[in-house]
Design a protein around this nucleic acid. Structure first.
Lengths: 202, 202
DNA sequence: GTCTATAAGATGATAGAC
DNA sequence: GTCTATCATCTTATAGAC
């Protein structure tokens, strides 16, 4: 995957392909994603896609990188002063209380891609890395809270993993069931879990 | 879908088709599941499948019912005397600490099917129902524990939803990442969550 | 109930012109 | 870089024999 400028991960043509893939994915879902459909969204021929990527799999792996980048950008947060706020911020980014259309779509695409991680090792590694990064971010915030005396002296890893599993489960339920109310309730419940586990005045 | 006997949901022929579908799913994954592959596993022709089911979708919806049945049977538990044990039992059934091959396979198939719930409404309704049933089961155990004075006077729905989200998230992570250790840790952490939230001597 | 044969179309991928 | 045309293969599904 050649780049036009060393600073940019994606050149113009490839970015357009990634965006067309994103649209095709939203319109048809992962199961019905084909080179033809991506080409249609791109308004170019299929052969044009094969000029940029060797195979469908090649394109898809590139797209996964693109999507994970987007997702990570979405959750990256300036480390504020208050660990309480930072934790709430990360959770809100990953699992918005009331997701707007764009957030809903991105999450839907991520869940669709993720289902491929079951059988595709390249996908699996990306999601392993993504989950690990989220846990580490959460861990660091908790550790800082402990150091600052804001949080109780708990095991940051244990709490971070628990938070992450709950977030993933809720995101998953949102994408695959009609239990939106339950999802919102779990989101609130997660805050109260943090309250009772971490805050000193619990 | 006609039945041989009114008590049985599946007759012999259909059960064999469901089992062949299950094997095909394990061997190739949902993305590569075709009528041909199911027929191969069944050791019959494709036309034989179309005698029993009108379309691929028809067969798949039937299979989902079959798989959900299996899964529900797996988690159904005789209501024992101790709510603590019952809760632990349900969690262990849904999220075994160290899953054997059969449990791992069933969970993998469920996650594969579930990814279809994103775009298929019939699938979505089944998983909505399944999740709801699990929450209700958990709720009832918690309520009984409260009534018996074994658990603190918490909101059973809130705790049940939280447990379910955490279980789903961990199951999901197990199927789509290489973070098996994290999954095992979360499973343990879930028990300690229950401890601190529910048990009176917490 | 199950078979073979086949239809009708979509899919991933390539060749060769421009 | 992008196009049209094409290929081999696979897909779901059906017709008709047994």
């Amino acid at each position: 995957m050649a780049t036009d400028s060393p600073d940019e991960k994606w050149n113009t043509a490839e970015t357009e392909i990634m965006q067309a893939t994103y649209r095709a994915l939203l319109a048809h879902g992962y199961a019905d994603l084909s080179i033809s459909r991506i080409a249609d969204e791109l308004d170019k021929s299929k052969a044009a896609l094969y000029y940029h990527y060797d195979s469908k799999d090649d394109l898809l792996v590139a797209f996964l990188g693109f999507a994970v980048d987007r997702f990570e950008t979405t959750i990256s947060t300036e480390t504020g002063a208050d660990p309480n706020d930072d934790l709430e911020h990360v959770i809100e980014k990953l699992l918005p209380l009331r997701p707007d259309e764009e957030q809903r779509q991105l999450q839907e695409v991520m869940v669709g891609l993720r289902s491929q991680a079951m059988t595709n090792e390249a996908f699996r590694e990306q999601f392993t890395r993504l989950d690990e990064q989220i846990v580490i971010t959460t861990e660091e915030i908790i550790q800082r809270g402990i150091d600052d005396g804001v949080f109780r002296d708990v095991d940051p890893t244990r709490i971070a993993e628990h938070i992450q599993a709950t977030i993933n489960g809720t995101m998953y339920a949102r994408a695959t069931t009609n239990r939106e109310n339950a999802a919102a309730a779990t989101r609130v419940s997660l805050s109260s879990y943090i309250d009772s586990e971490l805050r000193r005045n619990a």
